[in-house]
Design a binder for these strands. Structure first.
Lengths: 358, 358
DNA sequence: TGCCCAGTCTAGAGCGCTCTAGTAGAGCGC
DNA sequence: GCGCTCTACTAGAGCGCTCTAGACTGGGCA
């Protein structure tokens, strides 16, 4: 496990500091109180920012706490107040869109005085486990980003703790939902393509991923209503780059590229873009491409993906608000907040080649 | 905030279920004990999996708990035992390599009976805040993925709680480090290129990101030792796709592409690949490319990036082990675990064009 | 002078657990 | 019968906080 020059293990480093204080238990309110010469309760008042302490005392307490490195214990506080002021957020750790959402949720939660606990869903860690961890930590409410789980499981969870789903809907379960108007977003994308003259528009599907069903359905409806049912085609896929690349290879193998492709999310769109470009097919000259989400990658100079932006700030704000509202009044029927999408036209769409008046 | 068909807000949904039990407080050990007709302490024994309960009682307790939906309260448990059995992990939420690491850390922690708490570092949320959150939740030790912070701050944290840094080293602070042998990894990549006949090798830098300094230094050393100092060139960058794309545009603008590029990580390598390909420069025929990390994206059919793999499982295992060991014996000097890299040759490297015998 | 009141501060009972010390009872050998 | 050990279980004191009820000030006012 060791190797040569520059990579030496066992870093003796510099003189390795005073021995850390870790043996001594961490300071408590009692310690702060003793130092200042007041009661524990007063220190509590100060740290809760509650009325009932003079400004002078407040300052003295704060200073003493600082000096001895006191930091309130969330566990004790939670236990005593039976309120944790913590919101649990479940995310898929490999999902760039979730990363954006998490960032926004942190900001939003801070505004309303809540802490956030993250729990990740991953290949080896199911939704059930991720949610269980949050529950054990007494989160007051859960915000699940694109949850893939059963109605039954969610039904049980929601018996104890309010749940907000960002994306998927769970009809029949007492769960609030915050999502983008998928149908509208899809139509925005397709109208844009139609406006450029496209008729031969293929959809790259998102499989079981959050929002895919709505996007697929809206695509089919739109094509039918426009009298383009004959051109309608849904390529199988999911929300990963590789599914986009696979779709590209499939089309290349068939030797028939549509004039436009509407992908179920940005990652698959980028995968498609990459694979098809590499095969010598030009975007947007040979094929126009629209994604979904507007992840940071889509904005990059060399990608410039035309896409439908989801309102990340709005989704985060509504999710946190739904959670807080639900804490205040648990009984009203589930609410669905629907946020407006916004078409972002960049460089991957243009008019189809003239010849193509299929 | 509403829109038409299919996107209706206010989802009345189906009959919205029995009113949720949320009013009733969550069940406690007391409730379980009462139901079974034993003492609270015995229930505790069962849930801690401690000796001292008959198999029959154990089963009855477990069943009763199941029935009333009891779930141990982490806060209370932490408070009572003054052990949380929780490891705090700080990650950068937009970092794909961190996503891999988190997944592996979850698995590893579970093996040793620890829970994981995640806290994200993001543009609007500094390391200090992310770490503070973990500390408040009484994590027994912290694992920081690629921390970008000051020695001073870390010095303070480590006074109270063991810290493991995955990546960066902090000489002079009592922090364990787990990292890949950056120097060796760099040399593996460069030796591979040299073996193919490359001499004109440029390095795309990672700026202040974790590991970059070592990679840059090893690159310079290697070039010098090989007598290629004249060819040595370090393009500014960081660990994002866009910096790779920028580097590509810079080289294109200069009109002089080296025969090979060694990027400081996979993301910037992929950004470079994408931008340079799109400009008509072929990889690997015109320019060979090597990345660093081996993120999932690098393996995709249409990318096939030659890269140096970091041993994610190993890093996770060592990080968790270092944390646990440090809890057992706080005083020994900081340890540095160095893990072996592994060159993964895929499709982005080949011999330079014959003409180029610079 | 007496009384009230706002402003500060304190005492002490929990919150839901863990864990030490201890009890009850069964089984055993003598 | 006794003492012994072993297993199965219980009592009760905390862990570090919050929060209600109440105590103690020093004015202000009749």
């Amino acid at each position: 496990m060791t190797s040569t020059d520059g990579d030496t293990a066992q870093g003796g480093d510099d003189a390795s500091q005073r021995p850390n204080r870790r043996g001594n238990r961490r300071p408590t309110m009692e310690d702060v109180a003793a130092r200042v010469g007041v009661s524990r309760a007063l220190v509590s008042v100060v740290f809760r920012d509650a009325p009932g302490a003079s400004p002078q005392t407040r300052a003295r307490v704060l200073r003493a706490a600082e000096e001895i490195g006191y930091r309130p214990d969330v566990a004790a506080r939670t236990l005593a107040s039976s309120r944790s002021r913590v919101l649990g957020v479940m995310l898929t750790v490999h999902n760039a869109f979730h990363a954006d959402l998490v960032e926004a949720v942190y900001a939003e939660a801070e505004r309303v005085g809540y802490d956030i606990l993250l729990s990740a869903h991953a290949r080896t860690r199911h939704t059930e486990k991720a949610v269980g961890a949050l529950l054990g930590h007494r989160c007051e409410a859960l915000i699940l980003l694109g949850p893939e789980t059963t109605t039954d499981f969610l039904g049980e969870v929601v018996e104890r703790t309010p749940v907000v789903s960002v994306g998927p809907r769970f009809p029949g379960v007492h769960v609030d939902t915050v999502r983008t108007a998928e149908g509208k977003a899809t139509r925005q994308a397709l109208d844009h393509l139609a406006g450029l003259g496209h008729r031969d528009i293929t959809h790259l599907d998102g499989g079981a991923c959050a929002g895919s069903a709505e996007r697929r359905r809206a695509y089919r409806d739109w094509m039918r209503r426009r009298g383009l049912a004959d051109h309608a085609r849904v390529l199988p896929g999911d929300h990963t780059e590789s599914s986009g690349a696979e779709a590209a290879h499939r089309l290349l193998a068939e030797g028939r590229i549509p004039t436009a492709l509407f992908a179920s999310n940005d990652r698959s769109a980028i995968g498609f873009l990459d694979a098809i470009t590499r095969a010598g097919v030009r975007v947007p000259e040979d094929v126009s491409l629209v994604g979904f989400d507007d992840i940071p990658l889509a904005r990059l100079a060399h990608i410039q993906l035309t896409t439908v932006r989801q309102d990340v700030q709005g989704l985060a704000r509504e999710a946190v608000r739904a959670a807080i509202d639900r804490l205040a009044s648990p009984n009203p029927p589930p609410r669905v907040s629907v946020l407006e999408p916004e078409l972002v036209v960049r460089g991957t769409t243009t008019a189809p080649r003239a010849a193509e008046a299929s």
